[in-house]
């Protein structure tokens, strides 16, 4: 459970941490757009270079960043293998029935792997460097939907709580001899039941308590609410904005002038 990287904030003070959350969201969208517009290795390299710079500036240890990949590793390998065998191209190296390995197929799957890794690392960088509260403030300020932002911030806030709870329940069942590590997949799924039921019950209990606490403090959704901390743009955000703009433009130009692989 501790391996889940998503939704975890890494508390250090850095250039990236101090950027405005709205800008980080914009940057993420622009970056994802750039990854998908990129259709040759030059463009993808440019994306990777920008991301490496962001990671370096954020002062989040590399181990943590790479941990984000681990969760999707199987998915990435699976899609890469599928595309190697099914992508049709001109330079055929090996062929058996409908399966074939081509030069284009290999290129395509390497491309796919890099793309997916960049995507995952970039999204996890957002949560590593932005507190859930800042993220919600950002979303709220962009979309002006208060309730949605609230739901999101509560959901994010509950991730670590429920993970702690899971750990506690897991330990308690382990103390009673539960075994989560051995056996085939069906056995393991069955072994999760003693964790899942107490966890769901506790989530409902917590939701009830939170609802009561909000009622007790006269929370009213949807009313015009003021902010304690106002978000402001700074020079950092200008730098980030220009980088994102340059990246998207650069990648688009490479697509037009250099073309595909």
């Amino acid at each position: 459970m501790k391996d889940v990287a998503f939704g975890q904030y890494y508390p250090v003070n850095s250039f990236v941490h101090r950027c405005d959350p709205r800008l980080k969201l914009f940057f993420l969208v622009a970056f994802i757009a750039a990854i998908f517009v990129a259709n040759n290795f030059w463009a993808l390299g440019a994306c990777a270079a920008v991301l490496i710079a962001v990671v370096a500036l954020s002062r989040v240890p590399l181990g943590k960043v790479l941990r984000a990949i681990r969760g999707v590793l199987i998915l990435v390998i699976f899609s890469a293998v599928i595309s190697v065998f099914f992508y049709s191209g001109e330079t055929v190296y090996w062929k058996y029935g409908i399966l074939c390995v081509t030069r284009e197929g290999i290129f395509f799957s390497v491309f796919l792997i890099i793309r997916l890794f960049l995507l995952v690392i970039c999204s996890s960088m957002l949560t590593y460097t932005t507190t859930p509260v800042a993220l919600t403030d950002g979303i709220e300020s962009i979309f002006h939907v208060h309730v949605l932002a609230l739901i999101m911030s509560i959901a994010l806030r509950f991730i670590p709580i429920l993970m702690d709870e899971t750990e506690r329940i897991k330990n308690a069942q382990k103390a009673r001899g539960a075994d989560f590590e051995s056996g085939n997949i069906f056995k393991r799924i069955k072994a999760i039941v003693p964790i899942l039921i107490p966890l769901i019950l506790s989530a409902f209990r917590r939701a009830d308590e939170l609802g009561d606490a909000m009622d007790a403090r006269c929370y009213m959704g949807g009313k015009k609410r003021t902010k304690y901390k106002k978000l402001t743009f700074s020079w950092r955000d200008l730098v980030a904005f220009l980088t994102a703009a340059a990246l998207v433009t650069g990648v688009a130009l490479l697509r037009v002038y250099v073309g595909g692989m």
Binding site: I169, A172, Q173, V193, P194, L196, I197, P198, L201, S202
Partner: peptide, 8 residues
């Protein structure tokens, strides 16, 4: 709070 681990 061991009662929160009851599941069966």
């Amino acid at each position: 709070y061991p009662e929160y681990q009851l599941f069966a």
